[in-house]
Design a protein around this nucleic acid. Structure first.
Lengths: 222, 222
DNA sequence: GATCGTATAAAACGTTCGTTTGACTACATC
DNA sequence: GATGTAGTCAAACGAACGTTTTATACGATC
C-alpha cells in the first residue's frame, strides 16, 4: 500500500468527497460539508488537494485509473492467449465490465459510491471535466470497440456503434441503479447483487452485439 | 392550445428553467439565471410558480405527463386490437419508447432538453422528487412490464426484471447522449438521429427480452 | 537553539444564493 | 371615480458559498 500522501488528511477528504459528490452531485456538495464529514479543517482541502474542481477530478481518477489499467492489462493478456484469433466475446465483455462491477461492489471501501459519480459524468459532464473524461476513457474504449467489432463483422459501422452505445448505457445504468433495485422491482431483485448483474449483463451484451443486422431502418410506426 | 396561465410569463420561466436545469442540473442553476434568461423579474417565478423545488417539479410534469398519457392510451388501444393475445413485442416496445423519442426530437420546442433532465432524475433523484417520480412512472411501467412479460414466459421473474432494467437503461442513456453521438463515434453516428436510434433500439430491446434464459449464473471469470 | 517546510486552525474575504418585501402599474368591477 | 386584483419591479434579507489570509504547532536540519 503506497500512500501518495504522507498525511492521512487527503485520503479522509477524498473519501468524504466521494460519498457526498455521489449523493448530491458537484454543485449540491459544499466544501464545508466535505471537510466537516472528513473531520478536517476547511482550509485543509485547498492546502492538500487544490480547489473544488481539482478535488472532484482527483476523486474521479483515483478510482477510474486502476479500473482502466486493469481492463487494458486483462485485455492484452487475453489477446496474447488468443494468438490472433478474436478474444471470445463473453470474455471480452467480462473484461470490460468486471473491473467496474467489482469496484462498485467494494462495500467496505467507498468504491461503491463511485458508480453514481461515474454515471453522472457520462450523462451530464461538468465543463471542467471534458478533457479528463476523454483522456481516461478513449484508450480503453477504442481497444474494446476493436475487440468487440470482430464478433459483429456483418453490422455496418454505424449500427455497431449504436448497439455499443446501448450496451454501455445498460451497463452504467445498471451500476448506477444497483443500489435501489429492490425498490424498483418490489423486492424481486436484490440490491447490490453485483454477481448476478454482471453475469446477466455479459450474456445480454453478447446477444445484443451479435444479433443479425437490421434489414432496413423502417420503424413499426404508430 | 389551452393556456393554463393567463400570463405568458410562467411559460417563459418554465422554458428557460428547462434549458438551464437540463444543462447545469438543479443545484447548478440559480433562480437569477433562470429569470434573466426568461427576461422576467426575479420575483415573478415565486409569484407564478412557487419556490425553486416546485418550479423544478413543474418543469418535469409538464413534459412527462403527456408522454405517459400517450403511452397508456396507445397501449390500451393496442391491447384492444390484440383481443386477448399479447401485443406484438416490437409494437409494445415502440409504444413505450416512441413518445419519449419524439418528445426529445422536438427541436423547435425545448422538449429536446428534457431528455437530460429525465436521465438525471433516474440515476440521481432529488430528495423532493421521490414521490413525484414514483407517481409519474409506476402506472405506465407496471402496465408495460406486464405486456412485455408475456413475450418472455420462460424467464424467471428476476431475470426478466434485470433484462428490463438493462433495456430501460439503454433507452435513457441513448436519449441522454443522443446530442453528442457524433463526438462519441468520430462522426460515424449522427447527432439527434432519433429515427434511427428508435428503430435500432426497438430491435435491440426485442432481442434482449426474448433471448433464452441464462442456463446458470456462473460467470466466465478471470 | 535558530531556521525552515509541513500541517492544521480560526477567522474573515467578497460573492452569490433563495426568498421576501413593499411600492407601482394596468385593468376590471361596482 | 373608488375599489380590488393580477402582475411586475427594484431592493433588500439572512444564509451559505468557495477561497484566502493569518497565525500557530510540530519536526527535521543545520
Amino acid at each position: 500500500m503506497n500512500q501518495p500522501f504522507p498525511s492521512k488528511t487527503p485520503a479522509r477528504i477524498l473519501n468524504a468527497a466521494e460519498m457526498l459528490f455521489a449523493q448530491h452531485g458537484y454543485d449540491g456538495t459544499s466544501m464545508r460539508n466535505i471537510t466537516r464529514k472528513a473531520g478536517v479543517n476547511l482550509a485543509a482541502s485547498h492546502y492538500h488537494l487544490g480547489d473544488k474542481e481539482s478535488l472532484y477530478a482527483l476523486v474521479f481518477t483515483r478510482r477510474l485509473q486502476p479500473v482502466n489499467e486493469a481492463r487494458l492489462a486483462r485485455l492484452q493478456q487475453a489477446e496474447l492467449a488468443a494468438a490472433g484469433r478474436p478474444v471470445p466475446l463473453p470474455l471480452a465483455l467480462d473484461i470490460m465490465a468486471r473491473p467496474l462491477f467489482e469496484l462498485c461492489a467494494d462495500a467496505r471501501g467507498s468504491g461503491r459510491y463511485f458508480a453514481r459519480i461515474l454515471g453522472r459524468s457520462l450523462t451530464d459532464p461538468l465543463p471542467f471535466m471534458d478533457g479528463l473524461l476523454a483522456r481516461q476513457f478513449q484508450p480503453a474504449m477504442a481497444r474494446f470497440a476493436q475487440a468487440l467489432r470482430r464478433h459483429a463483422p456483418n453490422l455496418s459501422p454505424e449500427e455497431f456503434l449504436w448497439r455499443l452505445s446501448f450496451v454501455i448505457g445498460a451497463m452504467h445504468h445498471t451500476l448506477a441503479t444497483l443500489h435501489c433495485m429492490q425498490d424498483l422491482t418490489r423486492g424481486i431483485c436484490r440490491n447490490d447483487d453485483h454477481g448476478k448483474a454482471l453475469t446477466l449483463f455479459v450474456e445480454f451484451a453478447a446477444l445484443a452485439l451479435t444479433a443479425p443486422a437490421t434489414a432496413n431502418l423502417k420503424s413499426p410506426g404508430a
